[in-house]
Design a protein around this nucleic acid. Structure first.
Length: 662
DNA sequence: TGACCCCTACAATGCGGTAG
DNA sequence: CTACCGCATTGTAGGGGTCA
């Protein structure tokens, strides 16, 4: 076993000169928040500060500043975070500062129908800071709360004429951990920013993360917005946020160990030397954190450790997120010896641990987030990290140039940047998505009939020419409208008309979702524990019993490795010879392509090709057909997996094919 | 005689491409 | 993504030689 070991000196944040009324001395990055936000020079600020720097703590500072200076009007902020758990965490922190906080998530909104929108705006107006997720924002901005449903005429919501009223009540917006969003999600956020700037102009936007996204900053610059970047310096003096780290990188082969799991386990048992390390730590009252890349590995590890070591084990992964959970976190943590988790560890919750085994994660950002979780507020910590050969060799090469046994934090970050690759951000995708999102929002505003909404919509239309992709949608929608009105089959045969309309509805709907679509079923595992999870993942990674009537799966055991039980999906989101269309099925290549690539424009085009051949004859109006086809083909670049709504799964349990799982 | 080096053959490992 | 293949590179055991 090859490994590389070195130490990294403790990470400290220096204090600035500014001291606030409450007696805190501020760090540099916090000073921007403790100010009159309305007077800030720029519209957008990027805050770069490491995990543990006290970001959350400073999110309410604009409000404290207004109070401390006896402003007549108070300030209101919105914090947007990628997970609900993080939202709850932030709520707790800010409440301790005496701030009126409302968490707005699917769980805290209790009303249904028309009243849900009213509940949303009421919650916002009742607080000084609202914490929410981007999904709810996206739903709102695409008029999800306003558009009438079946049997309704129009929705006039109390105090909520349209989505812009929500933003009108805000002075500043903070996007926390924004590095987790992909190109399409970033495009969404940019459009929200541009639209509100067009309408009000007073809102200040903060993007906060430990790892800045250079490409996003570049993109803003290219579009005439110059954000200010505030980077928190580190030093050897000041507040200690992470103790000295001793890191051991362990080279693993893709073929043999495959992952951390293979490094820790041999023939289904913990390796002796690993067992010794863990047992010694527990007897010293240390807590241990184990982070896997794979959820399956995490679950299998749990069983093995429980069998071999006398310790309290707590597993916290995506599988547990929706589990009924009455215990509070502090309580769980205090009695736990070993925490097993996955990439879920990268966001939010802090564990007081000083010993950690981890898979390095896919990219630099994953690794940095994981490593930032260990040794918070401690003197020392020890980390064992498995890396694939390529990264290990990079590490070794660059480490040998430094030849130091102990690095300072900067040298460490620099070395990691050289060793790891970072995620590729496809910048050229962003303007296209911006155009699409803009169209979706404006189109949704068309359908409610308030004069003021029309005025706002007109104002927003000035943005259209910034993103020409908007017009692709506009023209396509015009043609579809003509087809919709074509009841006498003058343009197209009725059946084809119906499927075209159904496809367009499904396509439009995909913009109201912020994330991809998945089939979530109830899952029962470990003698009755109940949760909800992605059915596709469960079928591929576990041995299960399926109950179709109750939409429930019972996990009997986890597989040793992923199997391809699900062979494809059925969807209305693609136009194909047969409708609905199947992705995968007998075409294995297509299925793997779908599973493992972010963009599926070529699958879309391929299927559309056969649609064209088979459906052309049903069109009376040939010119319209030609033009329609051209427009639809232009959609290929924004066919990410988010466009696909899953109607059914195609499953193969062995010999027998069965495609009616849902 | 043992320490060391060189060489060779074969094994192991790694890598890039491809198909499913 | 994973399995597989062919090819390239690296690792290693063991033979053989030299030298002190």
């Amino acid at each position: 076993m090859e490994s590389l070991k070195f130490r990294v000196s403790k990470k400290c944040l220096p204090f600035g000169d500014k001291v606030i009324k409450q007696g805190f001395r501020l760090h540099k990055f916090q000073e921007i928040f403790y100010s009159d936000v309305a007077e800030l020079e720029k519209d957008v600020y990027f805050i770069v500060a490491p995990t543990g720097a006290g970001k959350t703590f400073s999110f309410a500072f604009p409000i404290l500043y207004a109070k401390d200076n006896n402003y007549l009007t108070s300030r209101r902020g919105l914090i947007v975070v990628p997970t609900n758990a993080l939202a709850e965490d932030i709520e707790k922190t800010l409440k301790e500062q005496g701030i009126k906080v409302e968490t707005i998530t699917g769980k805290t909104l209790t009303k249904k129908g028309k009243e849900r929108g009213e509940e949303l705006i009421e919650k916002l107006k009742n607080c000084e800071i609202a914490v929410t997720n981007p999904d709810i924002l996206n739903y709102m901005i695409n008029s999800g709360y306003h558009l009438p449903r079946k049997n309704e005429k129009f929705r006039h919501l109390k105090g909520f004429p349209d989505w812009s009223a929500f933003f009108n009540a805000l002075d500043y917006v903070i996007f926390d951990e924004y590095h987790l969003y992909d190109e399409e999600q970033i495009a969404n956020i940019l459009i929200w920013f541009l639209m509100t700037k067009e309408l009000f102009g007073k809102i200040k936007w903060f993007f906060v993360s430990a790892t800045p996204e250079e490409n996003l900053i570049e993109f803003l610059n290219e579009n005439g917005i110059t954000p200010e970047i505030i980077e928190q310096p580190l030093s050897n003096e000041g507040r200690v946020i992470q103790g000295e780290m001793e890191i051991e990188f362990i080279k693993i082969s893709k073929r043999i160990e495959r992952s951390l799991f293979g490094h820790l386990i041999e023939d289904g048992r913990l390796k002796e030397n690993i067992k010794d390390i863990i047992e010694k730590a527990i007897s010293n009252n240390e807590k241990i954190l184990i982070i896997f890349n794979s959820l399956r590995d995490a679950m299998r590890m749990k069983y093995i450790i429980e069998n071999e070591i006398d310790a309290e084990v707590w597993v916290n992964t995506g599988l547990q997120t929706r589990e009924e959970n009455n215990n509070n976190l502090d309580e769980i943590l205090s009695k736990t010896d070993i925490i097993i988790t996955t990439s879920k560890a990268e966001v939010g919750v802090n564990y007081p641990v000083s010993l950690c085994f981890m898979d390095s994660g896919l990219y630099l950002r994953n690794f940095m987030q994981r490593i930032g979780r260990v040794g918070r507020g401690m003197e020392k910590c020890k980390i064992y990290c498995t890396v694939i050969t390529k990264i290990f060799n990079n590490l070794e090469k660059h480490f040998n140039k430094i030849k130091k046994e102990k690095l300072n934090y900067y040298e460490f970050v620099d070395l990691m940047k050289k060793a790891f690759e970072d995620r590729e951000f496809k910048k050229d995708k962003v303007p296209k998505f911006c155009g699409a999102v803009l169209w979706s929002v404006l189109n949704s505003m068309e359908e409610y009939d308030k004069k003021l909404t029309y005025q706002r919509k007109e104002k927003l239309e000035t943005l259209r020419d910034k993103f020409p992709y908007y017009w692709v949608f506009y023209h396509l929608n015009e043609k579809i409208k003509r087809i919709e009105e074509d009841e006498d089959e003058e343009i197209v045969d009725e059946d084809v008309r119906e499927e075209l309309l159904k496809w367009w509805r499904s396509f439009k709907n995909s913009f109201i979702r912020f994330r991809g679509d998945s089939v979530i079923w109830k899952v029962i595992y470990e003698d009755g524990k109940e949760t909800e999870y992605d059915l596709l993942w469960i079928l591929d990674n576990a041995f299960v019993e399926v109950n179709k009537e109750n939409r429930t799966v019972i996990i009997r055991d986890f597989r040793e490795k992923r199997e391809c039980v699900v062979r494809g999906i059925i969807t209305f989101s693609l136009l194909d010879k047969d409708y609905p269309s199947t992705i995968g099925g007998i075409d294995k290549g297509e299925w793997f392509k779908f599973l493992y690539s972010d963009y599926i424009g070529d699958i879309f085009l391929q299927k559309f090709e056969s649609w064209k051949i088979y459906k052309e004859k049903y069109f009376e109006d040939e010119t319209l057909f030609e033009e329609l086809v051209k427009d639809i083909e232009l959609l290929a670049p924004i066919y990410s997996k988010k466009r696909i709504e899953i109607f059914d799964l195609v499953v193969d349990y062995g010999e027998v094919w069965c495609d009616d799982i849902l």
